[in-house]
Nucleic acid binder design. Structure first.
Lengths: 332, 332
DNA sequence: TACGTTATCGATACCGGTATCGATACCAAT
DNA sequence: ATTGGTATCGATACCGGTATCGATAACGTA
């Protein structure tokens, strides 16, 4: 008692498999009478088409593989939502995979996805090891590398320069007169983009003959709790700081909470700066500085690019789409 | 210049397709010599297996379809992470779909997934329309319904009773002596589980001859910003409230921020209660009451159940796994 | 009446794997 | 020399669709 096949629908409708196939797809060369009979039969016995057979036969799938490092960081669910929204109604279907920030796992996830013969792939970042890049290149489908911009893409690239974003935030903070600057971050070994922001940030300080007075970094995943804990630790070591740069807004929110508990005026005495422009930053009772990264738009753009790259239009597409995060200082 | 097939690997290795197939799968009846030749050839020409052909031939896939309403609510990414983690290394692969809280869209997403012949399905909630339920039943694979518990499952059910959770929170709040109670919520038309919690909550009030003094509900998606805005509006209408129940912790966090700005002491003057036990609740500078829902565990349990249900063990499995959220009042 | 056109349909091959079973070679035992 | 067992291999069928092309019937026209 398996799932009914087209053959069975055809038998129930008293026509051949081919006629049934044509009838259900709305193809030409079928009489109205046959169409009705086949539709009725399919409905009656609960026929659901088989994409495996269809895709094998058609030599292409309606799948777009998407690999992100994690879902814990709100950034990625938002990117995925953007991708999903654009694909909606196009007949294309996103398939998500998680790499957990682990390059080996990422390679296996990608290899797995490629075995489903997706029509395009969207992956996070530009820092894949050679073997992974080779897999992607050999797949001979449009590849979109997402989020990051500092590097040479396999094919298409949608993102922003995290180095430049860190540097821009550094310069912006310096214009507010802050000089005693600290850093709080998490998981820099894995989160390469946060590490790039930090390097860019430090570079901007050096150009002003400054450097980070203190920093506190933990290997854990980023979260408000961790941000709070590390901020307390940092302020114990370096109570004179007038500004702290965080690896992202989650951590920065924790910084805000720490300051509230310690009675430190934000942003008057201590300016707090994050990254992402998360929704939570808007709701906080005090303003923080942040770079607004267009996460959803990047997802949407990547999906659109993937769709277009599957058409002959492919040749005429820009290979790199650069976004620039908008900085708000929140202090004024 | 398509992707190389097994046939081509076989030709390059000087053996037949069957021998190549056996060699790559590590099956019996192949000489060491052939294995080496085939492996080398496959590596050299960059062969990647074709799951379409494999699954069509084997009459089963390694796919588990998962449908959630959204990724905007942190709850669902956590559930998905749990599912992903359990499936890791089992050879099974989760495929995610989004319904956007839209029953029609959910039905189409499910229909789409079924056309890939997944080996199991995990869907959110028990409130699917009949047509969707029929699709799921006819698929003749293990179906796990997730998150919710108030209803009759198709097959397996993992979740918690949101009605009971709301009621329990109501009773708990009453024991603290609070009597003037308000409600702040969002999107109750779509978020059926939040609506169930509210109903349970109101029932517990009625049992104490009380009712909600005021409520503020908006159709938007839940967020700290919305929680903040609605809290301000509610406190304008009903400044004497000593307790507010929120549709979830995101909204409750916004309530905390509103109180901070209004100079209202939390929890001394106003007790704030949410749902979920989100990470952010721990980091807030003041304590709120919340029900800790084991989101990740529910995902893990659902995945484990799906895996077991695909084995002969199926008959011996509990069909309903009930979780009970742990309530913390935060006030003491 | 013979013929071309059009509408409709179905037989067959194919997509890229795997299950199955028969074929072959080699060796040991009788 | 015959037999039987073992190791290795390949031909074939099949999974469930669709593309392709030839077949058939109905019809109008020369």
């Amino acid at each position: 008692m398996r799932r009914p096949t087209l053959e069975e629908v055809a038998a129930a409708a008293g026509v051949s498999k081919m006629t049934a196939s044509r009838a259900l797809r709305g193809a030409a060369d079928v009489s109205k009478d046959s169409i009705l009979k086949v539709r009725e039969a399919a409905e009656r016995i609960g026929y659901v088409g088989n994409q495996l057979a269809l895709s094998l036969s058609a030599q292409r799938t309606n799948l777009i593989g998407v690999v992100v490092p994690s879902l814990s960081n709100v950034v990625f669910p938002e990117v995925l939502s953007g991708i999903s929204a654009v694909l909606e109604g196009t007949g294309m279907q996103a398939v998500f995979g998680l790499s957990d920030y682990d390059p080996d796992k990422e390679r296996e996830v990608i290899r797995n996805m490629l075995s489903w013969r997706p029509s395009a792939m969207i992956v996070t970042g530009l820092d894949q090891p050679d073997e992974t890049l080779r897999l992607l290149r050999q797949a001979d489908i449009p590849i979109v590398q997402l989020m990051d911009l500092d590097g040479e893409p396999v094919d298409f690239n949608v993102g922003l320069s995290h180095g430049a974003a860190g540097e821009a935030m550094g310069r912006a903070l310096l214009t507010t007169g802050r000089r005693r600057i600290g850093y709080v971050g998490s998981g820099l070994g894995r989160d390469l983009r946060a590490a790039k922001r930090k390097r860019g940030f430090e570079m901007s300080l050096r150009q002003a003959d400054l450097s980070l007075e203190a920093e506190e970094v933990a290997p854990d995943f980023s979260s408000p709790s961790l941000g709070k804990r590390l901020t307390r630790a940092l302020l114990l070591k370096a109570p004179e700081l007038d500004c702290i740069y965080y690896s992202n807004d989650d951590m920065a929110a924790g910084g805000v909470f720490a300051c509230m508990e310690l009675g430190i005026a934000v942003p008057d005495r201590l300016l707090i700066a994050g990254f992402n422009g998360l929704e939570i930053a808007d709701a906080l009772p005090v303003r923080i500085a942040t770079s607004h990264s267009p996460r959803r738009e990047m997802g949407e753009t990547a999906a659109r690019l993937a769709l277009q790259a599957m058409t002959p239009e492919r040749e005429r597409l820009e290979r790199i789409v650069a976004f620039t995060p908008r900085i708000t200082l929140g202090s004024e």
